[in-house]
Each structure stands twice: as C-alpha cells, then as structure tokens.
Design a binder for these strands. Structure first.
Lengths: 412, 412
DNA sequence: ATTAGTTTTGTGGATTTCCACAAAATGAAG
DNA sequence: CTTCATTTTGTGGAAATCCACAAAACTAAT
C-alpha cells in the first residue's frame, strides 16, 4: 500500500498545514474553499499553478467567471450531488487547467471543496480515493471555521437590523461598528430587497448567499432575511455609473437564481444610492416603496428596479390622496374620457402610450398597431377635443400623470 | 326762436316717451344709453336707422366692435371729458352713419349718452343746444334707473359673496337665487380674478365694469371687488373651446384696461370651468391658486391664466413640502448640479429649457443661443453624467419637476 | 340603404432630427 | 507655454417627422 491507512489522522494546527499535507501526498497544488468558493487554505510550496488558482489566491475567492463556467459545464452541480472526486478538463477561456475536485460534506450538506491541480502528473485511482479521505478529514476543521463565522454573523445581523430600522443614527457609532465587525466599507451603497414568492427557507437563504458571495459585480456588505424578503446592503464597484451597475446586478441575480436553483418570480428593487451610512434606513424604505409600486403598476414598472428610476411614481401616493379629496381635476382628461366613452375611441390610451414611448411616433404606432398617420390624426383630435396644447410640456405632463392616477383608481 | 325755453319741462312717464319727444323736436332717430352703453330707451317712429342702431336695439347694448371703433377714433374719451354735443362722421366699417352725441352728467360723472342720427337732415347749432338741454333733463330719469339698479346690485353682491365663500352649496337654492335676481345662467362658467397693483377705487371699478359691460367675448354673470382683486363670474360663449375663449378674454381685457384707462400690471387668472354652480367656490379658489403660482413663478407662468393650464404647478406646493421633509431627492439632479458647479457648465439649464420647449432641438438651441449640435452634445453628457435615460419620459418628468422645485427653493 | 361625419390608411415632399466625424475653441493643470 | 480633456461649431447623409391631400373604411344615424 502506497499510503498508510489514514494519512490525515494527526492533528493539524491549521487548514494550511492540512493543505500542505495533501499536496505532499498527491504531489500537486491543493486549494480548499468553503461552500461559497471563498478561499480557506492553499498549499504553499508548489512550483506551478494555473491562472485561475493564482487569481483565487490573490483575491481570496474564486473569480466569478470561473464559477460561472463551472456551473455551465455542470461541475458544481455534480459536486453538490456526489461525494466522489470529479475530474475536470482544462477550460482555457478562464485559465483553468486540468484538476480534480471533491466536495466536503456535513450530513446532507456541502460545506466546502478541495481542488487538486494536475500540473505534473495525472492522479491515479488511489490518489482519488485519498482525496476523498482528505475531504472527510477536512470536515471538522471547516466546521470550526463556520462556527466562528456564525458567532460573528449573529452580531452582524443584529447590527444590520438596527441600521435598517434607524436605531443607530450617529455616523460615528455606525462607523465604529463597521470597523469592529470587520465589515468592509464603500464610498457608495444602496439597500436591495429581493422579494420571493414564499417565505425564505434556510435552504434558499444559503443559495442566495452563495450567489452573493460569488458575485463580483457588486460588493456585498451586509444581508439578512425578513420573511419573504431578502435584504442586502451592497456597494457598486465604480462611482461613475452606480445606477447601471445596481440594475445589472439585479438582472443577473434573477438570472442566476433561475438558472441555478430554478427559483423565479423574484421581485427585486434597490433604494437610493448614498454616501453616508445614516441613509441606510432611507434606502431600505425606498427599496420597499419600489416594490409596492411595482405591485400596483406591474406593467409600467416592469423594467424599474431602482428608486431613482421610479420617477413620478415616487410621489404617486401623495397625488392620489389629493385626487381623492376632489382636487386635481383635469378637464382635458374628462373631455377625452367622455369622447372615448361615447365614440368608442382610444384617445386616452393613445396619448398615454405615446408619452410612454417618449413621443416617438413610429414606436407608438407599432405599440398600438396603427398607422403612424393614424397616430398623428388622433393627436390632432386629442388637442382639439381636450383643448390641450400638445407643444406645452407642462400640460402634457399633467395630463399624463392624471391618466396614470385615473387608471390606478379605476383598477383599485 | 324756433323752440320754446325748455321743451323738456313736462313730466314724462318713461324715458321712451322722453326719447320720442327729442326725436320729434330734432326730426331724427334718438337713442339713450347708460354709461356702459346699455340701451335705456330709443325713439320709436323713425323710418330709417343705420345698422349700428338696429344692432344696438336688438341686443339692448351697443355692439362691441362699434364701441371699440368709437374709442379708437377718440369719440368716447371726448364725450367723457366734455358736456358739449359732438358730431361723429360716418364709420362705415361698423355700420355707423353720421350722428351727434352728448353725454349725460351727474356732478363730475358721466351716467349716460344720447345719440341723434342725422339721417335726413344735419342738425343746426340750435339743434345741438337743444340736445344739450335734453341731456340735462334726462339726468334725473337716468339716475332713478341707477338707483333701482343699485338696490338690486346690493342683493346680488351679497349673493355672490355667499357663492364665493361656499355659504350656499345646495344647487337648488343657488338656482332659485339666480332666477329671483334675474341673473342670466349659462351651461359653463368660471371665476376670474384680476389683481391690480393697488386697492381698487370706485373709479377703477367703474372702468372695469364699463369694459365688462361692453365686452361680448364672454357673458358676464356676476362680479365684485375685494381690495385689489376684481372677481368675476363669467361664462364662455361656446362650449367647444371654452378655455381658449377665457384666455382670449383675459388678454383683451388687459389690453383694453391699458389702452383706454392706462392701467397696466394686472395679474389675471381664472379657475376651472364647471357646469354646476356648487363649483363656484372651487373655481374661485383655483383662480387664486393660479395668481399665487404666478407670483412664485413669474417667468414660467407668464402665459398661463387658467387653472387648467397650470399643469404640474397645481400640485407644486405638495411636492415642495415633501421635498422639505428630505424626500424626493434626485441623484441625477445632484450629479448634474455638482458637475455644473465644478465645470461651470449649464447642463441643468439646458435640460430645463429643452423640456420647456417640448424637446424641440432647434427652438431650444435658439433660446440658449447655442448650436443645435452643442445641444445634442450636452444632452448626451446629461445622460452620461446624470445616469438618466433620456428616452424614459418618466425619469425626464421627474428630473424636470425636481429642477423646478430646486429652482424655487434656491430663490426663496 | 343612404348619407354625413369620423376615422384609418396611403402617398409624396419639405423639413427636421439624428449621428458620425472632424476641426476649432476653450480651459484647467502641470 | 504646453498639453490634454472638454466643449463648441461645422458638414453631410441617412432616417424620421410633419403636413397636406385623398381615398377608403367605418359608424351612427335617418
């Protein structure tokens, strides 16, 4: 027998030592990650490592594109469903050389991975068996790590909730807590809310957490769960186009949840993007506002995620209330409504769609399935019947808002 | 001596009889009007009368175009400043033949006019002297008429104030009063407010009243004075384009006040146009709102008179309040402001003017004195720097409103 | 069924917008 | 003063808009 019965019996001071031990035995570079692909340990005295491993060690996490690639090739799903070591062929696009991987299990759950690079030699069947044993042996060490993390996690959670509910408002105090709990800080941040169809189980929470930990589109600062809401404090990477980054992140989050875990129908939003931490509560509330408006106006707000993009819907409830008090009557709207009613025309819808399409004749005509000239005729009629000057943006805006208000009231 | 000393010494039952008497003596058709050119009496047994007189008798008031013409020719001003009879040459454009006019005075005030048509014969110097005597003799009769009017006027005033302040709300009761006080009714009406630079003296009130009585653009129902405000309940003639009529009326009112009485700087407005009388109070309040917004936004609202045209300014105060509570922040605006500040650019102004000009590139460029391409370059920069999608009308509207809000706050 | 009024679609041409590209002009930083 | 980035202005061609006019389709009455 090449190896002794249990080569991992001894007590290791750290997981680094453990990694070195495996590396010695298998004669290849070893990397140990947690379930979220964060680096736990790696073997030190290796001559050659491929670009993927280098990047992983430098940033202490596996690069997102590597993870994406592994998901697409079915590697991760396979590791998540079997305790057997798995050989992965070179994926040169992401700088990944030949390697073998095995997952570390605790009961029915994967809590980490061990990667062995096949740089000089290809591992034998025995080697794979050994790797499997190593995975079993790593379990306890990794678990300890999780336990330490969990204790910290509890304090972090409590702190986050205080922030979200506005129970800590002094900027100094907030900063101290960030430092103490070793939460990274960022120049800009926003609160995201992902609302799921049902209450979030711990399984789902882990899946979300997995996606967040592996994404590099955005910097994750804090997150927590509130029934069916997953609440996240995160920071865009750049300060130049933060809004775009946040929107893209939401889109890709939804895609990943669907592709990887088959969870769809997530309503997502984020609040204002701010610089100082006092605004966390505000950003959270704004994110909730976005969700509630998305519920009220599914069609209009389908492509809206950020509070900023809510536009006029930000003060919609205010106007609605005023309207309910009998204010804000609009004679143009009344006349058009009367005309539509009497002659079975679509003047109001026409105007609304036209405005929604940025006064673009062609797009609007397509959206309404009418000839462009028909549109222009209708607009002429709208101006006549509604006594509105269609070159007066002020009046047009008012009419547009009043239409949206009326529409909402009619449907509720 | 052709005539006896005082041919008008006798007692006349009515002013009609009086008119006939003058007609007999001068051998020509006679018309008597009050100070506002409303028909009081006319001689009956005349063969020929010119079109202007016919129209006057039919509608019981002198046609507006005739009055306008007489003002332009200086006839009315002359009659208002002298007690002497005045000969007026034919003004064929308005169907006015040769005639002589004299004003009826009470103390320093003109209370009416007598017109003598020179159909068959031209009046001699003696005839003119007689006409002057007739004017003096008419004084008491006309005064009695005014007295009767004044009594009614008092009741009408009280009623109008009750309407304006919402002290009569039952439609039935309102209708009864309209009937009882013989106020004409109309299918549509609105409350107008003309705000003068100073408190309205009874002289000015008479001048306003004069213009109102002689205008035929709009049907005057009721009016009253409140310090520097002249408040008017009036009805547009047509039901198809009531807004346009009301606006035109305001414009022409201002012109006439300036041309005829040299009173400028009148702030004018009208409220919503309604069908039922319960809305008089509302319309009045709306007219006041328009005035207050015109005070706050002189430039933006210069061409706005109707509440309907106020557009977004209808709910401006509401938004302002919300903004003051720290809501409605707009990161796009903030970024643009910062950029403008730092680089001495005009991105915000550019957007505002562009939107004010209905997104018309050429007009906006002219208004800003820049090349159209410069405008489009700036818009591109606005989209980049402000992270705003300029095809998204919703966001544009929000930014536009936020700019107006910020502008207002900066200047107050 | 006919008719009058309204609405829709089509055609063509003048005007305007949009966009890419490039040359000036400007202005701030070294 | 030079340099570099930004802004402004200019040119030209493709695309879109606007507008007038007219035929066709549709609707609501008589």
């Amino acid at each position: 027998m090449k190896y002794q019965d249990d080569p991992f019996k001894g007590n290791f001071d750290s997981l680094e030592e453990f990694a070195d031990r495996i590396s010695d035995l298998l004669q290849c570079p070893i990397t140990i990650e947690d379930a979220n692909h964060r680096l736990i340990a790696y073997s030190a005295h290796d001559d050659y490592t491929d670009p993927a491993r280098t990047a992983t060690i430098i940033s202490r996490r596996v690069p997102e594109k590597v993870i994406n690639s592994l998901w697409k090739k079915g590697v991760i799903p396979a590791l998540l469903s079997s305790q057997e070591p798995l050989r992965i062929e070179t994926i040169s696009e992401v700088g990944l050389g030949n390697r073998v991987a095995v997952s570390i299990w605790k009961n029915q759950e994967v809590i980490g991975f061990i990667w062995a690079l096949e740089t000089d030699r290809t591992l034998s069947k025995d080697d794979l068996e050994l790797l499997k044993k190593a995975a079993k042996a790593a379990k306890n060490k990794v678990l300890q790590l999780y336990m330490r993390k969990n204790k910290r996690e509890e304090r972090v959670q409590e702190f986050f909730w205080k922030l979200l509910t506005g129970h800590i408002t002094a900027n100094e105090e907030i900063k101290e807590n960030f430092d103490f709990l070793q939460i990274p800080t960022a120049p800009l941040f926003s609160v995201f809310v992902f609302r799921f169809a049902n209450d979030i189980t711990s399984d789902i929470e882990k899946q979300i957490s997995y996606i967040l930990q592996t994404t590099q589109q955005i910097q994750v600062l804090l997150y927590t769960v509130d029934r069916s809401d997953f609440i996240l404090l995160a920071a865009p990477k750049s300060t130049r186009q933060p809004l775009a980054e946040c929107s893209q992140f939401i889109a890709s989050f939804a895609t990943k949840m669907k592709e990887r875990f088959h969870i769809a129908n997530i309503q997502s939003s984020f609040g204002g993007i701010y610089e100082t931490f006092e605004y966390i509560e505000k950003s959270y509330k704004e994110a909730l506002t976005v969700l509630s408006m998305k519920e009220k106006f599914p069609a209009q707000t389908a492509s809206i995620y950020g509070y900023q993009q809510l536009g006029i819907y930000q003060f919609f409830d205010l106007l609605l209330e005023k309207k309910r008090q009998g204010e804000l009557t609009n004679s143009t709207l009344a006349k058009l409504q009367a005309y539509d009613e009497k002659h079975h025309t679509n003047l109001i819808e026409t105007f609304e769609v036209f405005f929604d399409h940025d006064s673009n004749v062609n797009e609007t005509a397509k959206a309404l399935n009418i000839h462009p000239n028909t549109l222009s005729y209708r607009l002429k009629r709208i101006a006549e019947i509604g006594e509105i000057d269609l070159h007066d943006m002020n009046q047009k805006v008012k009419l547009y808002i009043d239409i949206k208000l009326a529409k909402y009231e009619a449907s509720h």
